[in-house]
C-alpha cells in the first residue's frame, strides 16, 4: 500500500502550485468579470454580462480584436518559420556551431520590455541604428520612417518574432537531435535530395513540437503588451491598439477592474477557440 501512495504525495506540491497559481486566478478572473466591484469596501455584486456588454459596445473593441489576431498570426508565422530555419542551421555539424547555438538563446533571455526599447531605437526615424547603418553604407540618402500607420502592426511584431524565433529554434533543435541518423543514411542511399529529406523525414518528426511552438508563439503574440506599450503606445493613430492595451486602459487607467477582467476573459476565450481550431486542422490533416 505504501508503495502506491508515495508517488502521489510527490505530485501533490506541484498540483497545489497549479491550483493556486493557475486555476484559482482563472476562477477569480471570471468572478471579477461577472461582478460590479466597489473598491472602497472591496465588495462584489453580481453583474451578469454587463461588463462584457460594455466592452463589446466600445467602438475600439472589434478593430482591436482583429489587430490582435493579426499580430498573433505575424508572431506565430514569423517566429515559427524563422525559428525552424535557425534550428536547422544550428543542427549542422560544423566548427563553431556551439557558439552559434549559445547566441540563439540571447533574445529569449531578454525581457520583452527591453526588446521593445532595443528595437524602438533600431527603428528610430531620427537617430536609429538601422537608419545610421543604411546611411553610412550609402544605401539611403535620407533617413527613413520605418514605423508608419500602414506598417506599424508588422514592424512592432518584429521584436516579438525575434524573441519567439529564439524560443522556437531551441525547442526544434532538441527535437531535431532526436531524429535517428540511420533514416537519413537510408534516404541518402535512395537518392533523396536535401529538400525531400526535410519534407519527408525531418518535418514529420518535429511537427508535433513545431506545432506546439506555433501555438505558444501565437499565444505570446496575442497577449503581447510590453513591446507595444514601449514601441508605439498603440499608435500611430490606433494602428497598434491591441486588446492588451485596451485591457491596461480599462483596469489601470480607468480603474475599472471588472471590465478589464471581462476583456481578459474574452481574450482567453478567443485564444482558446483559435488554438483549438488550429489543432483540429492539424490533426485532421494527419489523419
Amino acid at each position: 500500500m505504501l508503495k502506491n501512495k508515495y508517488p502521489i504525495f510527490m505530485i501533490i506540491p506541484s498540483f497545489l502550485y497549479i491550483v493556486f497559481f493557475f486555476i484559482f486566478p482563472m476562477v477569480w478572473l471570471f468572478v471579477m468579470a461577472f461582478s460590479f466591484i466597489d473598491l472602497k469596501s472591496w465588495s462584489f455584486r453580481f453583474a451578469g454580462f454587463n461588463n462584457f456588454a460594455m466592452i463589446i459596445k466600445d467602438e475600439e473593441f472589434v478593430p482591436s480584436l482583429i489587430r490582435t489576431i493579426l499580430y498573433g498570426a505575424y508572431v506565430s508565422i514569423g517566429g515559427s518559420v524563422i525559428g525552424l530555419l535557425l534550428a536547422l542551421l544550428a543542427n549542422q555539424k560544423i566548427k563553431g556551431i556551439g557558439v552559434f547555438r549559445a547566441f540563439l538563446v540571447i533574445p529569449w533571455c531578454i525581457p520583452p520590455i527591453i526588446s521593445g526599447y532595443l528595437w524602438l531605437w533600431i527603428f528610430d526615424a531620427n537617430f536609429g541604428f538601422l537608419n545610421r547603418l543604411l546611411y553610412t553604407l550609402q544605401l539611403i540618402k535620407r533617413y527613413i520612417i520605418f514605423v508608419t500607420r500602414e506598417n506599424a502592426l508588422i514592424m512592432s511584431s518584429i521584436p516579438a518574432i525575434w524573441v519567439q524565433s529564439s524560443f522556437t529554434s531551441l525547442i526544434c533543435l532538441s527535437a531535431l537531435q532526436g531524429i535517428p541518423i540511420d533514416i537519413y543514411e537510408a534516404s541518402e542511399i535512395d537518392g533523396a535530395t536535401s529538400f525531400k529529406r526535410f519534407l519527408y523525414i525531418t518535418f514529420p518528426f518535429i511537427r508535433p513540437i513545431w506545432a506546439l511552438a506555433f501555438i505558444i508563439n501565437f499565444t505570446i503574440g496575442f497577449i503581447m503588451f510590453d513591446i507595444i506599450y514601449v514601441m508605439t503606445a498603440g499608435g500611430p493613430g490606433t494602428s497598434t491598439l491591441l486588446l492588451s492595451i485596451l485591457l491596461y486602459r480599462e483596469a489601470f487607467l480607468k480603474l475599472r477592474i471588472e471590465t478589464g477582467a471581462a476583456l481578459a476573459c474574452i481574450q482567453l476565450v478567443v485564444m482558446l477557440i483559435l488554438c483549438t481550431l488550429y489543432l483540429l486542422l492539424l490533426y485532421r490533416r494527419r489523419e
Partner: peptide
Amino acid sequence: TSPTITTDEVSAIVTA
C-alpha cells in the same frame, strides 16, 4: 512636428 510624434518616447524627444 516629428513624424513619429505620436509614438516618440521621452529619450527621443530630449535627444532631438
